[in-house]
């Protein structure tokens, strides 16, 4: 708790971080605004909320996917706070004042866990409220089915944030670390493209999909698959034009393990960097 309070003290007294965090939680609430969107597309008119996006249990899938997009807000805070520790040399001062390197890292990780927990709880509550208002099905069993999406949501955030933590400690400069994150995304895309193109020539038994899912960002992204094509309205349209989707939208245990292993590696790597480097 002492370590968590140290980190929260640092975050809370920074105006930018405070604004970003408050903005983040406000944006989560604003997902409710989606319910009021009326789509008018030529002759097709519909209200999003009435298309079943807030139906249990689909809402667990839809909202966790959409709200997870906001994770970049807290990622910026993590990267910026660590960049600050290096540029202000306060990491050095913290160590001199008697924080150990592992305590320093743990204070960051506890803050991440606290944030992920809070965010997950909030998503849970918002879904119950929105679902309660708009869902066509209100049976207890249906409401609380597919809750694994919440677990996936928490792990997705945790995985992403530990990746950011590692990059920030590795690169020390917040802007470069975020740039590197974007670059890494591009790299995974290129790697995937190359593998689709050539991999089967070298190792016929492996497909690009099988390999790419072990890459960190891809693994994090795969945790919750995009929910849009699962909407009945879109499924209907697809069926009409003869392009039926057959896709597994579930949460895969393997995927969760991959992300957790990556998180472990990132934390271990961060500690290794902290320990090895002179300040």
């Amino acid at each position: 708790m002492r370590l968590l309070s140290i980190e929260l003290f640092k975050i809370w007294h920074n105006k930018t971080s405070r604004v970003l965090i408050l903005g983040y939680f406000l944006l989560i609430f604003s997902i409710a605004i989606l319910s009021t969107i009326n789509v008018e597309f030529g002759p097709i008119k519909f209200n999003l909320a009435e298309q079943g996006i807030f139906n249990f249990p689909y809402i667990w899938h839809f909202n966790t996917f959409v709200i997870a997009l906001l994770k970049i807000f807290f990622a910026i805070i993590i990267v910026a706070m660590i960049g600050n520790e290096y540029s202000y040399k306060t990491l050095k001062q913290n160590l001199i004042d008697g924080l150990s390197k592992s305590e320093f890292l743990r204070s960051k990780i506890y803050a991440i866990v606290a944030f992920v927990t809070l965010s997950t709880l909030l998503v849970f509550v918002i879904n119950l409220i929105l679902g309660g208002i708009y869902s066509d099905y209100n049976e207890f069993q249906i409401i609380f089915s597919d809750l694994e999406y919440l677990l996936a949501y928490a792990i997705k955030l945790f995985g992403f944030f530990t990746f950011c933590l590692f990059l920030a400690i590795l690169i020390k400069r917040s802007a470069f670390a975020l740039g590197f994150l974007a670059l890494w995304q591009v790299f995974e895309g290129i790697a995937y493209g190359l593998m689709r193109w050539k991999l089967s020539d070298f190792i016929p038994v492996l497909s690009a999909e099988q390999v790419i899912k072990f890459f960190p960002l891809q693994a994090i992204g795969n945790l919750i698959k995009e929910p849009f094509t699962r909407l009945s309205a879109i499924q209907n349209i697809a069926d009409q034009i003869g392009e039926g989707f057959t896709k597994d939208y579930g949460i895969s245990i393997l995927n969760i393990i991959i992300v957790l292993v990556w998180s472990g590696l990132f934390i271990w790597g961060s500690y290794g960097l902290l320990k090895r480097r002179d300040l």
Binding site: I6, F9, N14, Y88, K89, T90, G98
Partner: peptide, 26 residues
């Protein structure tokens, strides 16, 4: 200990900085 340059969080006040150090030093 003070080494070379004073290192504090520029966005915090003197009082906040010292409070943080007390948290660290327990």
């Amino acid at each position: 200990a003070i080494i070379e340059r004073p290192n504090f969080y520029p966005y915090m006040t003197a009082l906040q900085n010292l409070n943080l150090i007390c948290k660290i030093k327990q």
